[in-house]
Design a protein around this nucleic acid. Structure first.
Lengths: 244, 244
DNA sequence: GGGTTCGATGGCACTCAGTGCGCTACCGCT
DNA sequence: AGCGGTAGCGCACTGAGTGCCATCGAACCC
């Protein structure tokens, strides 16, 4: 936690070799030889060779669960879950170069993709567990929780991957915010839908819409046309006429 | 394809030993000894030890992609994807006892859970790829495709797992249908929402098409009201009057 | 200071998954 | 019969992961 330079040395040596010769062409002996440590020490710090590729996901997962546990009962659950997903993005954005390298690795090596899936799955389960708690009273609570968690993770990953694919250029948060806004628009329900008119402090970087005037939007839609399409129409209606 | 009894013998021997001593306590040598075949033959039929646990997923995935490719341009994409998910359920329901055993195994052994994740991920990618093709013209097409695919898989798995948890008792399809209906109600859009009033031929075995009529929902809202607020009102308007 | 305990590390030796290669046996074909 | 292809088998090898013990250093106690 405080000072393990050995861990960092192993990660650095591993990535250097992975980029040079590829993941599967690099043995653990190669890594420890380059790092100048004993082979046994590698497995002291990483339970498996693949885990050296995701060095800080364990910490990030702990942060996320802590964040979810902290947001006990107050706000709208979907927003909280989206915030939790944003935390993961921040971890990626901390080291863009490293994240891009890792992305290229996981893209090529099937074994690493499986490892990444495991990690992502744990994030998704954490989100779903939180939502299950919040939706305990709803009729299809666990189903909704699982679906929303999956949607949040998928949206987050979609935006994250497109950012990684562009070599970490540009702002990652805007794309992720947009993706999560779409999810929030689909599933999101305000914390107290009836007793507040002001969005309150920090409703997230989502909706711009500061025009507090009484402009009226009328949406006409057939039944059976669900949210999605409706949301799109409303969005376009809101944005195509920026004035008046 | 036609008759490889060796494959089946290996699967049978493997599951017998897995249930007796557990997965990790069973070596490949044990399996091939019980099956009475050579060790090398095991890896001819299964690329890895874990793959013996999911013997027919490869075929099922092929069937699913074929089904998606067949439904070229006609029906609503979300319904098609839900049908594809139902195909997976059918594979599980073919052998309830086997599926339940496998579920218990994958629940206990982390390595097997990782393998299952890989398999599920491939299903999800197949669905997403199909949807991406269908949503190619939409603005956030790939994002919507990824999110919907994730939601479909999550809903399917939620229902499937609850069925497996109950030892395969009862009807699996009803629970899955209900879960997928929820997804369809959230994302599903009739094929052409604006230029057609009839849902068209074959809206899929899913929705019982509660109202093909031209029910109209009119939403009046102030500008500046955040999206979720609007969505919630529409939702309540859509659900509070189930008939007429 | 000397001994001691404890934690971190290194060094083996071992199991087992997975692979490459060569050999044999069987099956269909001409 | 001869012959090619294929399915199975045995063997040897690499490499990941583990258990066990020796070592070293730092704090700690008397």
């Amino acid at each position: 936690m405080t000072k393990p330079p050995m861990r960092d040395a192993l990660v650095a040596a591993a990535f250097q070799l992975f980029l040079e010769r590829g993941y599967e062409q690099t043995t653990v002996d190669d890594i420890v030889a380059l790092a100048g440590v004993g082979r046994r020490s590698f497995f002291r710090y990483f339970p498996a060779k693949e885990d050296v590729v995701f060095p800080d996901h364990e910490r990030c997962l702990a942060d996320m669960t802590a964040h979810l546990a902290a947001s006990a009962e107050d706000a709208d659950p979907v927003g909280r879950v989206c915030d939790a997903a944003r935390m993961v993005l921040l971890m990626y954005a901390e080291n863009p170069a490293f994240s891009v390298q890792r992305y290229r690795l996981t893209k090529k090596v099937p074994g690493l993709r499986a490892s990444e899936l495991s990690v992502v799955w744990r994030y998704q389960r954490a989100l779903a567990a939180y939502l299950r708690g919040r939706f305990a009273d709803r009729p299809d609570g666990t189903l909704q929780a699982d679906v929303i968690a999956a949607a949040v993770v998928a949206a987050h990953n979609n935006a994250l991957r497109s950012w990684l694919r562009s070599d970490g250029q540009g702002d990652a948060t805007t794309a992720v915010d947009h993706a999560l806004d779409l999810v929030k628009a689909t599933f999101g329900t305000p914390p107290t839908p009836l007793d507040r008119d002001e969005p309150g402090p920090g409703p997230g970087p989502g909706s711009e819409s500061e025009s507090a005037s009484e402009d009226v939007v009328i949406v006409v839609s057939r039944r059976g046309v669900p949210m999605w399409r409706v949301v799109q129409e409303i969005e376009s209606a809101l944005t195509t006429r920026p004035q008046n």
